[in-house]
């Protein structure tokens, strides 16, 4: 088991090393990266927005419930929603969801190409397949996912407003006052660091799973599932590590 983990780590890093080589032709890689940005970014906008609205809403409702009867000022609701969304909810939940959506997609796409000998066919032509199939996806994700996370943070905060203000849990003034209280732009920086790291994990790990898939459709399904599970675990581990390092 331990040897197995080391084997996968080793092969994963070797693939990454091959993947970040000089492209044969920039325009082909550029085109592919643009296509991926569209798939990952535009394609995930709705689900990311939907999830964020609810996260913001639930945070407000539950925190208001926790504050009930205490002396803590109500505007703290706004303050807590803001920081919780920025530091944790927007990057982590968004990327866990994207690992499921984008990650399984990448593993299935690359794995399918492996099984249908498309990768062999490209290798024969002289294409560096690890680079052509992996790099544009990772680069696209590194650009687009932080933007998605940003959207998630805004929408989440908006969701909190929708859930809190019309229902009378908190007044609009209190919420906005809370929004602006104790603001520290370092938290936003932390959000982007997390987004970038998670984006790298949730594209490169599934790409690895797909690239080395063997066998038939059962194995492909398995690879796709493993891609999501491992990405999720690694995202959570990375989340913890980043949290420790950046709040020292």
């Amino acid at each position: 088991m331990n040897r197995n983990i080391l084997f996968h780590f080793g092969r994963y890093f070797i693939m990454l090393k091959t993947a970040f080589a000089r492209p044969e032709r920039w325009s082909m890689y550029y085109q592919e990266a643009m296509r991926q940005m569209n798939d990952i970014g535009i394609g995930s906008l709705v689900i990311v927005a939907l999830i964020s609205v609810f996260i913001g809403a639930v945070t407000v409702v539950q925190f208001a419930y926790q504050l009930g009867g205490t002396l803590v000022p109500r505007y703290y609701i706004g303050y807590v929603v803001r920081d919780m969304t920025i530091i944790e909810m927007a990057p982590t939940i968004t990327c866990l969801v994207l690992a499921g959506k984008v990650g399984s997609n990448i593993a299935a796409e690359i794995g399918g190409m492996r099984q249908k000998e498309h990768i062999d066919a490209m290798e024969i032509m002289g294409v560096n397949t690890a680079a052509y199939l992996v790099m544009p996806k990772v680069i696209a994700a590194l650009f687009v996912i932080p933007l998605l996370v940003c959207v998630a943070a805004f929408v989440g905060i908006g969701g909190g407003y929708i859930a809190g203000v019309p229902t009378g849990l908190i007044t609009a003034d209190e919420y906005i006052y809370g929004m602006r209280a104790f603001y520290d732009s370092y938290n936003v920086f932390m959000m982007f660091v997390k987004a970038v790291v998670f984006a790298f994990i949730l594209t490169s790990v599934p790409a690895y799973q797909g690239y080395y898939v063997q066998g038939g459709s059962i194995e492909l399904g398995k690879a796709s599932t493993q891609a999501v599970v491992y990405s999720n675990i690694l995202i959570l581990v990375a989340d913890y590590i980043i949290a420790i390092i950046m709040t020292l």
């Binding site: 044969e24 032709r25 325009s27 082909m28 249908k116 000998e117 062999d120 066919a121 024969i124 032509m125």
Partner: peptide
């Protein structure tokens, strides 16, 4: 080197023309 695979291995998300053009585009 050119190779014809047992299962043809044509890229199924591209048209026939894009398939044949792929090596030209790349190299």
């Amino acid at each position: 080197v050119g190779m014809l695979f047992q299962g043809s291995a044509l890229f199924d998300s591209m048209t026939v023309e894009e398939n044949i053009r792929f090596p030209l585009d790349m190299f």
